[in-house]
Design a protein around this nucleic acid. Structure first.
Length: 878
RNA sequence: AGGCACGUAGCUCAGGGGGAGAGCACCACCUUGACGCGGUGGGGGUCCAGGGUUCAAAUCCCUGCGUGCCUACCA
């Protein structure tokens, strides 16, 4: 059957994906003898819409899974989505707001029902989009972090950690988002710098003997000040230590204290201390037994402790307070200042340090084991540079705040007794207090940080805490492929929890890929309007072109810059493959490759050459994939397919095919095409399947299940490979003359080649048909002697061969003389450099012998080339 | 403030101690029976700057400049 003129991805992609699903090719079984290979997907948010980061991430995973599946492994790609607490709650709240409702109108249970309804309706979008990309996940196993099974795992882990003393509840200054009304972990805060001011405020001494001027970026917090601190060694303030100041506006008395954390150089060297609204100040407060006065509530408004400012928004308060201070003469001045601000990574609201009771995981003991696991190589981090970052973070890890004051998520399985205050942690709801037997119990309203449940992903998705056959076969997983941006959020937590609960690392390798940026290297964002939408790209160019582009740009450890144009470029490549397929198929119609396996020793030169090149490409591709050098794999395949197979071998094959002979050529065309398709299938699954299905005599029902090509030593001919190199050089030499002298491709030329080596001459002569066809020549002559050198010729020197094209009457002699002169100049320059190097006695004495030999060889080649050009020049001039 | 990358052709980037590479763009030629989403040929670079190591540096080491990112409780 003939293929269409151009490759049209749309129908083909959909048709094959459905077929693959129907035939359950992506299913990985729990039993069997094949070795297991597993990857768990970084679960996208249920609210997610496929973006470039997902596309890159999942393309790379799919490449590894498809490669290993073809290479004889039982390959499991475990899919699923994340409930994404805050993000999802935000989305649903926004949706409710459109209907004029808030979550408080509904109440907790109804709201959660609403979220589930939302998920059931919209949560499948990202999965559909992953399928569009061609992801070969085992969809029957799809998990969700709020599934019953996973929720059970979460409870089990929480309770175990609690009982082991690794979870505790404590007062602490946490990062508080006044909009989300929830604590955030340190990682969920984004740090930025913003334009602000440094205010200088006068605090008079109570005894009227003087004053202290403090510097602050947040004047409104002074309402909660309970001390002013100075450095103990600061003699400027030595006499004031222990004295009391009068807090302006509030007229409270606060002490002057000494603490080593105060930097004498900054501001005035005196710091106002607000234990309730700053982490440093809180810790200082603990050291000095200071009172803690909360003045800002959970919504970011001033509370009853803020005196006249009660009820104001924190920023409004700042403004009013400044006016009051000014009026009352306490404001010394304000200067512009770059202030660090933390913002909520979900909603961009400015974070408010907030004192509250939260749940924490004691991370140090867990981190120690996680550090060891990387140090002793149980888990490899690739590229290696990230190991350092991992150690750095793990070594300085702080306790992990895991409670969130939102509704959507895993509710913390803790109950408080209203009778005696006892805290009970258990899997099921207790009926009475374990201490005082009171029945007045309240469940904790907080839910867990989303990353708590995703931290269990590698084993919770496989059925833990049950000892399932899936775990047995697939845990630890082989590689985790993810972006470096969630190294701490997710990878580090999986390491800690996997080691703790499975007793083994969650994955053998972690491959961290870069971020996808636009072509200027900027982060993609809606506000910049530089978003490249994967779905749009796939609609335009097809999933294969899109995937190949991502793969080709995924150089290790570097950002992936992508643009519409680059994807278009690879669409041309897909079309090239399509056309190569079309050519081969149309030439092997009715041909039975299995009945025509040729005797390797009887293969023609071009056949031996392309088979040898194929082996090289196979070896390089496999090696690149094993080492996660995806761009190298793409590059090798691109080069081999287009410039080796299409540009040379297919062209070479045409003359043989036209003679009506050529069954071995047909066999080789078929063999190489099939190998190319199979080699590339993991990267571009659709077009390869479509062509593969039309191959005659294929074994197997789908390329998905085909064997990944291996190097074939029986079809490897290194010597002939080299001979073909001469022929290629001669052909491109003739073409070069033709191009540069403006001889039309239609004009058939005569070519004379001077080869001194007799054996080589014989071999070239025997294969001169290739030169005739591809260089478009009438006659190919060979000479052995300098004396026979023809006159009035254009010359190209390649690989120690002189290639003459007689040109009398064909071209302009003067132009040719110029051309030769120009080349001589180039060669002479190179030669001079080479001679200088070789005349350096230190070089000859100290460099490795192979290097010197190589340089000598190059020098000789250059000398030969220069001499040839000079003589040709002289003869032409004569 | 510390850390990690990166500065190579007009653009986007590979490479990584011994003759400067790819894709795109550019120029010329080509209606060759797979493909003009094609073919052939060609032009184009003090490999950021300065110093060091070396027989030899785009490549390794320092310094500087520039860019990007990550981490951090300086009010």
């Amino acid at each position: 059957m003939m293929l269409d003129r151009e490759y049209d991805p749309k129908d083909i992609e959909q048709r094959w994906y459905e077929t693959w699903l129907e035939r359950k090719y992506f299913h990985a079984g729990d039993d069997g003898t094949a070795p297991g290979y597993a990857i768990v997907i970084p679960p996208p948010n249920v609210t997610g819409v496929l973006h470039m980061g997902h596309a890159l991430n999942n393309t790379l995973q799919d490449i590894m899974i498809r490669y290993k599946r073809m290479d004889g492994y039982e390959a499991l790609w475990m899919p699923g989505t994340d409930h994404a607490g805050i993000a999802t709650q935000n989305v649903v709240e926004k949706y409710l707001a459109e209907k004029g409702k808030s979550r408080h109108d509904l109440g907790r249970e109804a709201f959660i029902d609403e979220v589930w309804r939302w998920r059931d309706k919209h949560g499948g979008l990202i999965i559909t989009q992953l399928k569009r990309l061609g992801a070969s996940c085992d969809w029957d196993r799809t998990r969700f972090t709020m599934d019953e099974g996973l929720s059970h795992a979460v409870k089990k882990v929480f309770i175990t950690l609690y009982n082991d003393g690794l979870i505790y509840r404590s007062d602490y200054i946490v990062n508080w988002c006044p909009r989300c009304h929830s604590a955030l972990s340190d990682l969920e805060v984004e740090h930025e710098e913003a334009d602000g001011f440094l205010w200088h405020i006068r605090y008079p001494l109570a005894d009227g003997t003087g004053e202290v001027v403090v510097a602050t970026t947040r004047p409104e917090t002074m309402l909660g000040d309970t001390a002013v601190a100075v450095n103990p060694a600061d003699e400027r303030y030595a006499s004031m230590l222990g004295k009391e100041l009068v807090l302006p506006v509030m007229n409270r008395r606060i002490p002057v204290i000494a603490d080593a954390v105060v930097d004498r150089e900054f501001g005035t060297g005196a710091v106002k201390v607000t234990p309730a609204h700053d982490l440093n100040d809180y810790e200082m407060g603990l050291r000095h037994g200071l009172e803690v006065i909360v003045i800002i509530d959970e919504s970011g408004n001033m509370n009853e402790n803020a005196g006249p400012y009660q009820g104001m928004d924190r920023f409004e308060c700042r403004k009013r307070l400044e006016e009051d201070l000014q009026e009352q003469g306490f404001l010394v001045g304000k200067t512009p200042y770059r202030v660090p601000v933390g913002t909520c990574y979900r909603c961009r609201t400015t974070i408010e340090p907030h004192l509250s009771k939260q749940w924490f995981v004691k991370t140090r003991p867990l981190a120690e084991e996680a550090i060891r696991a990387v140090a002793d190589g149980r888990t490899r981090i690739i590229p290696k540079q990230w190991e350092k970052v991992y150690y750095e973070w793990m070594n300085n890890i702080r306790d992990w705040c895991i409670s969130r004051q939102i509704w959507w998520g895993h509710r913390i399985p803790a109950w408080y007794c209203d009778g005696c205050g006892e805290v009970m942690v258990s899997e099921t709801e207790p009926t009475q207090c374990s201490k005082c037997a009171s029945a007045d119990l309240r469940q904790e309203t907080d839910v867990l940080d989303t990353w708590f449940s995703s931290g269990l992903w590698p084993f919770s998705t496989m059925g833990w805490p049950e000892q399932t056959p899936t775990l047995k076969r697939f845990y630890p997983t082989d590689v985790l492929i993810t972006g470096f941006d969630i190294l701490f959020f997710w990878v580090a937590r999986m390491m800690m929890l996997g080691l703790k609960f499975m007793g083994d690392v969650p994955f053998r390798d972690v491959y961290l890929h870069a971020l996808v940026r636009d072509e200027q290297g900027q982060k993609m964002s809606k506000s910049k309007g530089n978003i490249v939408d994967p779905i749009v790209e796939m609609d335009k160019y097809g999933a294969d072109a899109f995937r190949f582009a991502l793969t080709a740009f995924a150089a290790m450890g570097r950002d992936v810059r992508i643009s519409d144009k680059r994807i278009q470029g690879y669409r041309f490549f897909i079309n090239k493959i399509w056309n190569a397929g079309k050519f081969v198929l149309s030439n092997i119609e009715g041909f039975d490759p299995q009945g025509a396996v040729p005797d390797p020793s009887k293969l023609g030169l071009a056949e031996k050459w392309i088979l040898t090149e194929l082996n090289r490409a196979v070896a390089q591709t496999r090696k690149a994939l094993e080492e996660y050098r995806f761009n190298d794999a793409a590059d090798v395949l691109y080069q081999f397919t287009w410039h080796t197979f299409c540009d040379w071998y297919i062209e070479l094959s045409k003359s043989v095919l036209s003679t009506g002979e050529g069954n071995q050529t047909r066999w080789v065309l078929h063999h190489v095409l099939r190998s190319i398709l199979e080699l590339m299938h993991p990267i571009i699954p659709f077009v390869t399947e479509e062509i593969w299905q039309r191959l005659p005599g294929r074994d197997g029902e789908s390329i998905v299940k085909a064997r990944y090509p291996s190097v074939n030593p029986e079809l490897d001919f290194p010597g002939d490979d080299e001979l073909m190199g001469y022929i290629i050089e001669v052909i491109s030499g003739v073409r070069s003359i033709r191009g540069e002298t403006g001889i039309s491709p239609g004009v058939l030329l005569d070519v004379v080649i001077r080869v001194d080596d007799q054996k080589l001459r014989g071999l070239l002569q025997a294969n001169s048909v290739h030169i005739r066809d591809l260089a478009r020549t009438r006659q190919v002559g060979f000479i052995a002697d300098e004396a026979e050198r023809p006159r009035k010729c254009a010359l190209a020197v390649r690989k120690g061969l002189e290639v003459y094209v007689p040109l009398e009457g064909v071209i302009d002699i003067d132009k040719e003389l110029d051309r030769l002169a120009k080349q001589m100049g180039k060669v002479a320059k190179e030669l001079e450099e080479k001679r200088r190097k070789l005349s350096n006695p230190n070089f000859v004495a100290k460099a490795k012998k192979e290097v010197v030999d190589e340089q000598v060889r190059i020098r000789e080649a250059l000398e030969f080339e220069l001499a040839s050009l000079q003589k040709a020049h002289a003869l032409l001039k004569a």
